[in-house]
Design a protein around this nucleic acid. Structure first.
Length: 607
DNA sequence: TTAGGGTTAG
C-alpha cells in the first residue's frame, strides 16, 4: 500500500485529491481487515494471503502483513511459524506488527521465551516505541515462565515510556509478581493503583490463593465487596480454590450459595473449581454430582474428578471414570496420569499402575518428576523396595529430594535399616536443611531401638538449627476454624484446653478397654513408654477430634484438616473412636482423606 | 491488538 499512502507533507484537505486518496486507502484497509477476520481457519487465511500477493502494492504493506500476523496471534488455530515468516519480510515493522508477534508468542507456554526476546529486539531495533499493549503482552510472557528478572526490567521500562497509568500495565505487573510468588510486590502495585477494578481485585485475590495465603485471599474478597464491586466467575474461581486449599467446607458452601444467588455464570472453570473444592473439603458426593451434571467436560474437569476420587480412596471409581474419559474422546494429560498413578499407589494396584505408565508413554506424554514419584511410591508401598531403588537409579533425570524421601519412607516402613541409612545419606546431602528427612530417619532408628542414633540425629538437628515442622490440625466448628498444635503447645494454648484434656482422658480409657495398645515406635523421643503414650495422645489431630466431640453431637461429622500425615497410632485410635462413640470422623491429611465410620477407615488401612 | 480463573507425586 506504500504507493497509495500520501506524503505527510502534503495537506489533506477535504475534497482534495489527497483526501480522496486517503479515503480510498481506508476503504481498502477496512476491506482487507474484514477479509482476514472472516477467515475461519489458517488454510483460508493462507488462501487470502496468496490471493492478495498478486497485488504488489498491497502485498508489501506493513498494515496488511501485520493484520495477518494479528490473525495468527489471536486465532485459536493461529500458526506462529507462519506469522514469524511474514514478520521477517517486514523491513520496518510498526508497533502493531511487534505487538502482534509478542502477543502471539506470549499466549503459548513454549513460545514465551521467544516473546520476551522479541520485546528485547523491538527495543534494540528502535523502529517503534512500546505502548501499553506491548508491555501487557510482554509481561504476560514473563508471568508464564516466572521470569522475574525480565519482568523487573520491563517494570523499569514502564516508567521510562510513561505507561505506568495504564490499568492494563498495572494488572500485568501485579500478575507477574503474584505468579512469581512476590506477593508483597504484587500487593504494593495493587495498593498504589488508583483505579482498582474487578480485574485487579481478582488478580490480587488469585495471587493470595495461589501461594496459599488463604485468609488474605478471603479478607480481600470481603473488602472488594465492601468497596461495592461484585465478584464475577473469575473472582469466584480464586476464592473457591482458596477454600479448597484450606479445607474450609462451610465457607465453600456459602460461596457456592453466593454464586447461585448472584446468578454468576457457572462455566467450566468455575464448576471445576467447585468440584475440586468439594472433593478437597471431604464432600466427594457433591463433587461427583456437580461433575455428572456438567454439560461439557474438558481434560481438567475429568482430571480433577479423578484426583478427587483418588484422594478419597475411591480408586475403583477413579479408574472407571478414566475409562469413561477415554470413551468420551477427551484426551488425558500429565495431570490425569498423576491422579491415576497416585490412585494405584494408594490401593497397592501395582500391575494397573504399570499399565497406566505404559499407556501414558503410548499417548506420547513424557513422564516428569511427579510421575516418577508416584511409581516409586507405588512400588514402595507394595514392598518392592529393591525394584523401586533400581527404578530411581534408572531415571533419565536426577531424582529430587521427594523421590529419595519416598524411598526412605519405604525403607522405614519395612524396617530396612542399612538401606534406609544409605538412602538417607544421599537425601541429606541433597537437602540437609529439611527437618522431615531427619524425622523419617529418626523414626526408622526408633523402630529399630537405635536410641543412640536417635539422640545423635537430634543433636545434628539442634546444632544445625533444623527444626521439625509442628503438627497442626484444624477442625471447623459452626463455620469457624480452630487450630491445634501437637502437645497443645506452639503458641497460645486453646482456651478450652481443660475440657479437651477431659475428653482425651475418657477417650484413652475407652480405647484401652477396647484392647488397643499404643504403637509407641511412632514417637521419636528417647523417653519411657509411659511418656511416649502421653506424647501420642497429644498429636494435633487428637486434640482437634476431641474438640469436635466436645462441641458437636452425632450425626454431625467431625472434619479435621492436618498439615502432616496421620501416624499409625492415631489412625487406629480414630477408628476405635468412630465405633465406640458412634461418630463419623473425616480427616484430611497432607495427602489424602480418611473417613472413619463404625471402626473402619475408607483408606482400608493403606495410606 | 490490552489485564484476572479450574486439575499435579510425598
Amino acid at each position: 500500500m506504500a504507493r497509495l499512502v500520501p506524503s505527510e507533507k502534503k495537506v489533506n484537505v477535504a475534497g482534495s485529491p489527497h483526501h480522496h486518496l486517503r479515503q480510498r486507502q481506508q476503504q481498502i484497509e477496512e476491506h482487507i481487515a474484514r477479509l482476514i477476520q472472516s477467515c475461519p481457519n489458517m488454510s483460508s487465511l493462507r488462501q487470502v494471503h496468496a490471493h492478495l500477493l498478486k497485488l504488489p502494492s498491497i502485498s508489501s504493506s506493513v498494515y496488511f502483513l501485520s493484520k495477518i500476523i494479528g490473525y495468527c496471534a489471536s486465532s485459536p488455530s493461529g500458526d506462529m511459524a507462519y506469522a514469524r515468516r511474514i514478520f521477517s519480510q517486514i523491513p520496518h515493522p510498526n508497533v502493531f506488527s511487534w505487538n502482534s508477534m509478542i502477543r502471539g508468542c506470549s499466549k503459548l507456554q513454549n513460545l514465551s521465551r521467544e516473546s520476551i526476546s522479541l520485546y528485547k529486539r523491538m527495543l534494540q531495533s528502535g523502529s517503534a516505541s512500546p505502548n501499553s499493549f506491548t508491555i501487557a503482552f510482554a509481561l504476560k510472557a514473563c508471568s508464564l515462565v516466572s521470569g522475574l528478572w525480565e519482568g523487573s526490567q520491563i517494570h523499569a521500562h514502564v516508567y521510562r515510556f510513561g505507561l505506568d497509568s495504564s490499568p492494563f500495565v498495572q494488572t500485568g505487573l501485579l500478575n507477574l509478581y503474584a505468579k512469581c510468588e512476590r506477593i508483597d510486590s504484587a500487593r504494593s502495585i495493587f495498593d498504589e493503583s488508583p483505579g482498582k477494578n474487578l480485574v485487579s481485585w481478582s488478580a490480587m485475590i488469585g495471587g493470595y490463593a495461589r501461594v496459599g495465603m488463604v485468609n488474605e485471599a478471603l479478607d480481600l474478597f470481603r473488602e472488594m465487596q465492601e468497596n461495592g464491586i461484585d465478584p464475577d466467575e473469575v473472582t469466584m474461581v480464586s476464592v473457591i480454590s482458596a477454600c479448597a486449599r484450606a479445607g474450609a467446607l462451610s465457607l465453600g458452601r456459602w460461596l457456592h450459595a453466593l454464586i447461585d444467588r448472584n446468578g454468576i455464570e457457572q462455566d467450566m472453570e468455575l464448576t471445576t473449581a467447585l468440584i475440586d473444592m468439594y472433593a478437597k473439603c471431604g464432600s466427594i458426593g457433591i463433587a461427583r454430582k456437580l461433575f455428572d451434571e456438567m454439560p461439557q467436560r474438558d481434560t481438567k474437569a475429568w482430571s480433577s474428578m479423578i484426583v478427587g476420587l483418588a484422594i478419597h480412596g475411591l480408586v475403583e471409581d477413579a479408574l472407571q471414570l478414566f475409562s469413561q474419559m477415554r470413551e468420551s474422546k477427551v484426551k488425558p494429560n500429565e495431570v490425569t496420569f498423576v491422579g491415576l498413578l497416585s490412585a494405584c499407589a494408594h490401593r497397592g494396584l501395582v500391575s494397573e499402575g504399570r499399565r497406566f505408565w505404559s499407556t501414558m508413554r503410548e499417548l506420547g506424554i513424557e513422564p516428569y518428576m511427579e510421575h516418577y514419584g508416584c511409581m516409586v511410591d507405588l512400588l514402595c508401598r507394595a514392598g518392592l523396595i529393591e525394584e523401586a531403588h533400581s527404578f530411581v537409579n534408572a531415571m533419565p533425570v536426577p531424582p529430587n529430594p521427594v523421590i529419595w524421601r519416598t524411598l526412605l519412607v519405604g525403607c522405614k516402613n519395612r524396617r530396612m535399616l542399612a538401606k534406609g541409612e544409605a538412602i538417607a545419606r544421599q537425601l541429606l546431602e541433597l537437602e540437609p536443611r529439611n527437618a522431615e528427612n531427619y524425622v523419617v530417619l529418626s523414626n526408622l532408628y526408633a523402630m529399630s531401638s537405635q536410641w543412640e542414633k536417635v539422640a545423635g540425629l537430634r543433636k545434628t538437628m539442634r546444632d544445625g538449627g533444623v527444626r521439625a515442622a509442628a503438627g497442626l490440625s484444624c477442625v471447623e466448628i459452626a463455620g469457624r476454624l480452630h487450630q491445634f498444635a501437637a502437645g497443645g503447645g506452639g503458641g497460645e494454648a486453646h482456651p478450652e484446653m481443660e475440657g479437651i484434656r477431659a475428653v482425651l482422658k475418657e477417650v484413652a480409657e475407652r480405647v484401652r478397654l477396647a484392647g488397643h495398645r499404643p504403637a509407641t515406635a511412632a514417637v521419636l523421643h528417647d523417653v519411657g513408654e509411659e511418656e511416649k503414650e502421653m506424647a501420642l495422645c497429644e498429636h494435633s489431630e487428637r486434640l482437634a477430634i476431641a474438640y469436635g466431640m466436645m462441641k458437636t453431637a452425632p450425626p454431625v461429622a467431625i472434619r479435621v484438616v492436618k498439615n502432616l500425615r496421620v501416624c499409625v497410632d492415631c489412625h487406629e485410635v480414630t477408628k476405635i473412636i468412630s465405633r465406640e462413640f458412634d461418630r463419623e470422623i473425616v480427616v484430611r491429611d497432607r495427602v489424602r482423606f480418611h473417613r472413619f465410620v463404625g471402626g473402619v477407615c475408607s483408606c482400608g488401612d493403606f495410606w
